[in-house]
Structures are given as C-alpha cells and as structure tokens.
Design a protein around this nucleic acid. Structure first.
Lengths: 194, 194
DNA sequence: GTCTATAAATGGATAGAC
DNA sequence: GTCTATCCATTTATAGAC
C-alpha cells in the first residue's frame, strides 16, 4: 500500500525514472537536479521522461511516495505490537535498518528543502509522520516528545550524511545508531536480536 | 576571525547580500535560490549584486563562512577550558544557543546538498568540524565517537527543522535540546546556569 | 553602487514522427 | 516508449551608461 491514495503501483518504466531521480536528488538536491540530468543518467531524452510523468513535481511526489512506503511498513509492524515498549523497540530497529539499507539516499527525505515542503504540505505524508511519532512517543506527545522525535529522525539522517560515518560498515553503524537513539527515546540498553 | 584565510571582513553592501541570501537559502535551498530572487528581496537588480560578488558561488562561500564564524567562537570558548568535561559542557551549551539564535536558518548549513558539498570540499570548513568534534569527543574519535558527533549535529538541525518544534519558545526548546544532546555525548544531567 | 540592456545557456514543457 | 525539434521562461553573467 502506498501513501498516496488511488496510486497503487508504478510502471517499470516509471520505476527507472524514480530510481535515477532518487540518486541524483541525493547528490544534487531536488532543485539542483534537472530533467536533462535524469535523462542523461538513464540514457534517454527528456521527452521520454515526460511520457512517464507529466511534470517534474510528479517525479518528486513519486520519489517521496516510494521512500515513505518503507517507513509505513515499519510503522505497521510496530503497531501490531500495540502501544507497548516492545512496539517502540520494533519501530526503532526497523527504522534504523531501513536507514542503513538506504544509507546515501536517506538524506533526500529529510535534508532537501523541496522535499521538506512536500512532506509538510501533502497530508498523506504528514499522517505517516504522525503515526510514527505516536508509536514512538505515545498518542499525544508533549513538547519534550516532539523534540525527542524530531531529534531522533534528524540524528539518524545526520549520522548517515556525515562523510566519516559513511566509511563504517553496516553492522557497526547499526549498533551505534541503535544504542544512541535508544538513549534519546528512553529505551533500555540491550543487545539486539540479530 | 573568519574561516577563509585572507578574507578578513565583508563590506556593508556585501553583508546585505549575504543576509538576503541566507534567508532565501533556508527557505528554498541554494539551488532553488536565483540571483533574481536575492535581488528582488533586496530591492535592487542582479547587476548590483554582481558588483559585490563575482559569482553565485562566492555568495554561497560567504554565507557558509559567516555561519561557521559563530561556531568557531564557540569552539574557542570551549578550548579555553582545556580538554575537560567542563569544556564539552561549554561547547554544547554554546552550540545549542547558537542554533536557537538562528532557528530557521540552521538547516541551511547541514540540510542543503550544495552546502554540504561546500563544507566537505573546502578544507577550512572541514577543520572547523574536526576541532568541534575533538573538543566534544576527544582528539582521536573512534567509530562510536564519529557517530555520536554526527548524530548530535543532525539531531539539533533535525529538531529545529521540524514544524511542530518550531512552535516552541526559545527557553523550552533550549532546555529539551540540551537535555537530550547531553545524553548522546555522555554528559551528566544538570540544571544549566541561565 | 546601481541601473538598463543583452548575451549565451539551460530550465521545464509540448507537438508530432517513428 | 522513445525520438527530434521547438517554444518560452528563466538562469548566470557581462558591458557600459549614470
């Protein structure tokens, strides 16, 4: 299930555009990426891209949609545990795993000004964030809660964006990331189940 | 003392460009900000800006330079305390204060892809980050140290970028930000001196 | 220091052939 | 689904008047 209602799946040709766009967005930002750059990366012309997406905005939407789909799955897995400490542990682990899986791409969602606008202005995206925070912090987060949540997501993105951290292997990074985010959200230290 | 060697100070007319650019960079990103937009904000023409800076890149450089000047001052204040726990407390407090002072602008440095490149590629900027991390984590940070440092800076930037956190007043935000970053860098809880 | 005017390139987007 | 060709707006940047 995707975030945007009515849009069930993307065609293969569209997926190729989305993949190319995601990589370029991560490197140059949304505004810094032209359709020409995407076309060159794919080895096609601009017009071929316009056959898949009517506007550049639609490409940005699709990229955000696909990126958040992973987050949604993590939230649903956590919600299946109810509103327990275990649910928060599951969520944190899956979010960290997701971030590591992506690594160099994670920044796109939370570091690009254009993406930030998208996530803030389109209701479906806001709902995902709210659900995530609800599991992590309880149903009606107070000021401290919002700061906590925002810091956790920022911390993960910030860590992965740092060049020195980029050199660490997945397992090491995962362990440190989990240990430190647990501190912020008040989860007890523990050796994880992997 | 500024970050870039040989560049001592900016002329008043240059400062007006830098101020206008900073605001627009924060809102639209560097790539999303054109010289025309800067000129409109200032109420002048593009040519007037080119009289102050030869290229757009020079404007980006100046903005980064000025933003990091504040960080440098914080680092120097902390270094005056030696490599003590007290030094790390001073640094964390001043960095948080600096972030809150800026609030909506903080993102520019750490969230914009173009800015990130600048900070990573220009040696003077890298040196500032390294000095900051050295005070916060010790002279030769290990893997865990780098993750810690990157998470702290990401957490601060992430928190300030979040719309729900943006509504909090300075004092509340400062308290939460300090309390949670202290957890990450292993500083004891304490009521601060303000 | 700021203006008008303009050059040269690139951006998003469309029409129509294959 | 992809191509060539084209339109129009906007971009960075410069020249030269005031």
């Amino acid at each position: 299930m995707t975030v945007v209602e009515g849009v069930a799946r993307y065609r293969p040709a569209q997926m190729r555009v989305i993949t190319a766009a995601l990589g370029l967005f991560a490197e140059h930002g949304v505004s810094g990426t032209s359709l020409q750059m995407i076309a060159n990366t794919m080895g096609v012309t601009k017009a071929a891209i316009y056959y898949q997406f009517k506007t550049k905005e639609e490409i940005v939407l699709a990229v955000a949609d696909l990126e958040l789909a992973g987050l949604e799955a993590a939230i649903e897995a956590a919600e299946a545990e109810g509103r327990t400490t275990r649910a928060r542990e599951v969520l944190l682990e899956r979010v960290v795993d997701l971030a590591i899986e992506r690594r160099h791409m994670v920044g796109v969602l939370q570091t690009d000004p254009v993406m930030m606008r998208f996530l803030a202005e389109h209701e479906p995206f806001v709902r995902v964030t709210d659900r995530l925070f609800a599991v992590l912090l309880g149903d009606a987060p107070d000021a401290a809660g919002w700061v906590r949540g925002a810091m956790v997501s920022g911390a993960i993105a910030g860590a992965l964006a740092h060049p020195r951290v980029a050199q660490l292997d997945d397992a090491t990074l995962r362990a440190h990331l989990l240990a430190l985010t647990r501190r912020v959200v008040d989860l007890p230290h523990q050796t994880d189940g992997h």
